[in-house]
Amino acid sequence: MSPEQQNISPVHDRHIALGAKMADFSGWQMPIEYAGVKAEHTAVRERVGIFDVSHLGKALVRGPGAKDFVNSCFTNDLNRIEPGRAQYTMCCNERGGVVDDLIAYLKSDDEVFLIPNAANNAEVVRLLTEAAPDGIEVINQHTTYGVIAVQGTKSDEVLTALGLPVGHDYMTYVETDWEGQPVIVCRTGYTGERGYELLPAWAATGELWDALVMAMKPHDGAPAGLGARDTLRTEMGYALHGNELSTEITPVMARAGWAVGWKKDTFWGKEALEAEREAKSTRISWGLDVTGRGIPRAGCEVKDAGGAVIGTVTSGTFSPTLGKGVALALLDRSAAEGDDVVIDVRGRDVTAQVKKPPFVEVGVRE
């Protein structure tokens, strides 16, 4: 596969045929929207939508003691789960900054499958490879699998129409086949709605996409782009690497301490994160429920009632569900839920209230 092809999804031709607006995302040409972000967002919240997220990274760590090795590197504790389950975790640097947040799928004590973010896949593979002891193999599988997310209240019906397994618990997965091709069916997602992420072989991804498009038609489903994916995750308060998490923004700052195995003997960045957790001096993540007229964007300053700058917006968008602006921000420890604040949106003050996300209530774990 040539370098040019590596940056094109296996569903690329389908996106073009559907008239998708395409844009560069982490070096990949991906669909931002088809019929419009609001329509696609609403389809997921009310019915069902499908997303091509094949740009996401994939890697396999295997060999005797692979689970223990990965556990010694990443923040969360793989001993909390058993084979057949998935876990959100983070790869940190020595300062506690987040190199990437990712999903680890525990296959066995000797095999762990990883889905990093697209832009960070190579770096995660590099760091693991450099740290791996003899006998542990780290394999970059970025273009071995495609990824299609099926999200929404009708997601079970769509998968059932294709003969794929449904109903397994949140953060579990099933390895099965479809039309003679292997596919992994994961009860995961990034929208807050009930849903699944399907991992077919790269070459079979287009055929599975076509079948899903047909299967969701009776439910008035819609293909959805990364624009709707972003509005959906922001409504839930889900972190996006590069915004709410980065090499400068730690799990403590992002309120992601729940994904840290604090009692583990070791993981990358442990000492720095323990010191930061104890000091309680860094800014931390909050939601901002906009009460004025305006849409905050990343980088906007946040001021308290007295006009003092107390933080910065990390993500901001128009919420199609609520019909107004919502944002995530890093704020000083002096901020508290219910506080009235002002966001500087291109020189204009927009009022908001500090809130702990999510901004909308959905059935993510149903």
Rank of each mutant, 00 (worst) to 15 (best):
L226P: 07
L159M: 07
A228Y: 00
V364P: 07
E123T: 13
T247W: 03
A215P: 01
K67I: 05
N79D: 13
K355E: 11
H241M: 12
D156K: 04
L328G: 10
T75S: 15
G242D: 10
M22H: 09
G180W: 09
S108W: 05
G49W: 02
L322E: 09
H55R: 11
G261Y: 01
S26R: 08
I310P: 07
V174S: 06
A336H: 12
L127R: 15
A272M: 07
G307H: 13
Y170M: 12
S281P: 03
F113S: 05
F51Q: 01
I284A: 06
L102T: 06
D52M: 05
T42G: 00
V252Y: 11
L198R: 02
G36V: 06
A308D: 14
T247E: 15
P64G: 02
E179C: 06
N79W: 05
A132F: 01
T172N: 08
S9Y: 01
G189W: 03
G192V: 07
N7C: 14
D134L: 12
G338M: 06
R126S: 14
E366Y: 12
Y238C: 02
T144A: 14
E46L: 05
I50L: 12
G19R: 09
M171Q: 12
T188S: 15
R14F: 02
A327W: 08
T160I: 03
D100L: 11
L114G: 01
A203K: 08
V138P: 05
V44F: 02
A305P: 08
V326D: 04
N121I: 04
G146T: 04
G242Y: 07
E111I: 07
M216Q: 13
E361S: 13
A211K: 02
P223Y: 02
I343E: 04
R47L: 01
W202V: 04
V313R: 01
P357E: 10
P31H: 05
W258T: 13
W258G: 09
D177W: 00
Q353D: 00
A224P: 10
T312P: 00
L226F: 14
M253K: 05
E278G: 04
V342N: 00
A222R: 11
G189M: 06
L288M: 10
S285Y: 00
R194T: 13
L240S: 09
E46H: 06
L232P: 06
A118R: 09
V345H: 01
P3M: 06
E123P: 01
V11E: 00
S246L: 14
D77H: 01
R126M: 12
Y170T: 13
V98M: 00
E33Y: 07
L212H: 00
T314H: 04
Q151N: 03
C92K: 05
E137T: 15
E179Y: 03
D13F: 08
R233A: 06
A119Y: 09
E40C: 07
